[in-house]
Design a protein around this nucleic acid. Structure first.
Lengths: 372, 372
DNA sequence: AGTCGCTTCGTGTACGTACACGAAAAAGGT
DNA sequence: ACCTTTTTCGTGTACGTACACGAAGCGACT
């Protein structure tokens, strides 16, 4: 059971040449049924696994994986966190003749996205790592791609596609967890909870709010709270957010806590501090984006839920590598754990330099990242 | 700036043979100062990086790393979590001719530990991954090891050694964070907080309790609470723990929350539920070991702090690989993030099967884990 | 000049796989 | 019987690196 299983050894046992063994291993023609059977038996018996080092060297091929995701600066910089993980994996895999080309698209510009997808259908490279936002455009495009090209989803999945693996968050559980955090933070305070939905169409956000609601439904009568869901497209820029929040607090009932079900909690946090409403109003949001980290340090945000975007990007690329280069079997989907952050466990080094780099880099989309 | 920089190319440019270039690259003798200089210049100019695939193939060497850690079943199974990460990395690296030999020792038996260390000093292999518990025995042994053998610490570090990298938790911050969680959970309740120290000599536990105390000192007068630290060696088995807790609640003042600063919180959680004291007493502990996960599901433990033992083991081995096999530069120490777990974000699959496997495996210590 | 020793360098082989080319053997046709 | 086609297989070369061996070149000494 040593690693002694080489092509040469198989050839010796089967009393043929390595060329013949090679043909059998690659399913090429030109081998009699008889010897093929004999070789197959020996291969199975020895548990032969080709030496990847030698294979890679011999093939002398450079693999190209393409990553497709929204611009790193969108969603308050959430995608930069994913991109970071992708680049880390790209660095680690560069020694094995793997190049990674990252294409960022504007998630508010379907036309440019469609154009990008067309290009990818034409030149998919050896594998794709895809953030499946905008499924309406994505799914048909995936159908047109050469079926031999594997793809992996990160940051969620969509129906109607057959990815090698999907690495994603459990948005519903995240919302449920956010409910628990909210209850802890607002314990004893009077008032309703407000769940802000900044992208009415986004599936993740919807699920988070559903989970949030479910938590309070599941609580006994003692802890049950009224939750009001509000759609607000104003949570993009400081000015519009401020106007929206002014109105919300002026007109509505007393508010004990706010859930911002995407990564723009810092806009609400900033407003709460500026308007002197922070006392008495808990704030829970998503993702360790720079703005949220800052706002949490300043005391605006109380709690952040996060789903390891770095690890998702990294793991996604590594899965592609394992499947395409190492030809290992698919290990199924991954559901990353839900992380909770308070002021006391914010990462010491939020790597602002690295994030700034990413933000800068996004200007030149479609770069090839390599190292060799 | 392509990856075209091969030995052959350098030889062509320097008008020598590849053998000569090879001698220069490996610092071997037999090259005139003149040509050496010329080749060095070209190497630097081209930014030559040897092809690891080819090197590995040619060297035809199997690397052996040794991992040294307490028995997987000790500390309520904490080490099994680390071991899991180590095995994952071992699996990923097996394709590159890396074998990992794991030695588990009894952390309550210094003699056997010393014997193991002696063996490791004699046969350190190509690198070591070490959990630096029992520094009194470890540090002198490390001093006797061939200085060419690199070692990486995980789950903490110790003074007096020079590891390639140290991957560790920030125990003090963890305790501080636990303070915040305790305050949230026990909000409004009367009573003191008790911090239980199960290993008076363990540095991590000490630091956690220090951080916990610091949190309440840092709170304003409004939230400041009395914290009583208790050493208790009874937190090992259910019976002794029960007796201890019985006494503690009978004799002491009213208790609003308990901090178990190691991974045996489940013993306390079980007792609280059985004795009907759970209402009114928050419980915070450490690590996602099977017992704690169960107890949290049952409602005994309210909150667990964790420091990614899986990732620590995995990253540790990968660092060794990078340093020894890839000859990449050291990237410095790692401080893993502090994770918080409540019932709502417990991992869906605590992999009980995998954990059981590990517990079984520890019977046969010192196995070699490989795949090829 | 011849031999020895030394420095300096080139050549050959190996690692394990992939694939092209061509040789030998078998099958088909007249 | 002979030639052609097809099947079946072996050999050779390449990938890029590591290292052993031995061939030049040079000076020094007998």
């Amino acid at each position: 059971m040593d690693q002694k299983a080489t092509v040469k050894e198989i050839a010796r046992l089967a009393e043929v040449s390595i060329g013949t063994v090679d043909r059998v291993l690659h399913g090429r023609s030109g081998v009699s049924a008889e010897t093929k059977e004999r070789i197959d038996a020996i291969v199975a018996n020895l548990g032969y696994k080709p030496n990847i080092l030698a294979r890679q060297l011999s093939l002398n091929k450079t693999y190209v994986f393409r990553a497709v995701m929204p611009r790193a600066d969108q969603d308050s910089g959430y995608w930069a966190l994913c991109l970071h993980g992708i680049r880390r994996a790209a660095r680690d895999l560069a020694s094995f003749r793997v190049k990674v080309r990252v294409d960022e698209f504007d998630r508010y510009d379907e036309d440019s996205y469609r154009a990008l997808l067309e290009d990818i259908v034409k030149e998919p490279g050896d594998g794709l790592l895809i953030a499946p936002v905008l499924p309406r455009e994505l799914v048909p495009a995936l159908g047109k791609i050469d079926t031999s090209v594997p793809y992996v989803f990160f940051d969620g999945t969509v129906e109607g596609a057959s990815p090698l693996a999907a690495i994603g968050q459990d948005a519903y559980s995240g919302g449920y967890l956010a409910g628990r955090m909210m209850l802890l933070l607002a314990n004893g305070r009077e008032g309703v909870f407000v769940a802000l939905n900044a992208h009415a169409e986004d599936r993740h956000i919807k699920l988070r709010i559903e989970g949030f609601n479910a938590f309070f439904r599941d609580q006994g009568a003692a802890a049950s709270r009224e939750v009001r869901e509000l759609s607000c497209f104003e949570l993009e820029h400081t000015e519009s957010a401020d106007a929206f929040l002014d109105g919300m607090f002026r007109e509505g009932p007393r508010i004990a806590g706010i859930l911002v079900a995407n990564s723009s909690g810092h806009l609400v946090g900033d407003w709460l501090l500026r308007s002197g409403r922070k006392e008495g109003c808990a704030l829970v949001s998503w993702d360790l984006v720079p703005g949220n980290v800052r706002s949490m340090r300043e005391g605006g945000i109380d709690c952040l839920v996060s789903q390891r975007p770095f690890e998702q990007g990294r793991e996604g690329l590594e899965r592609l590598f394992q499947a395409v280069v190492q030809e290992e079997e698919n290990e199924g989907d991954v559901r990353v754990p839900l992380d909770i952050f308070f002021r006391e466990n914010l990462p010491q080094r939020p790597a602002p330099a690295a994030l700034a780099q990413e933000r800068h880099r996004q200007a030149a989309s479609g770069r090839v990242d390599s190292r060799a």
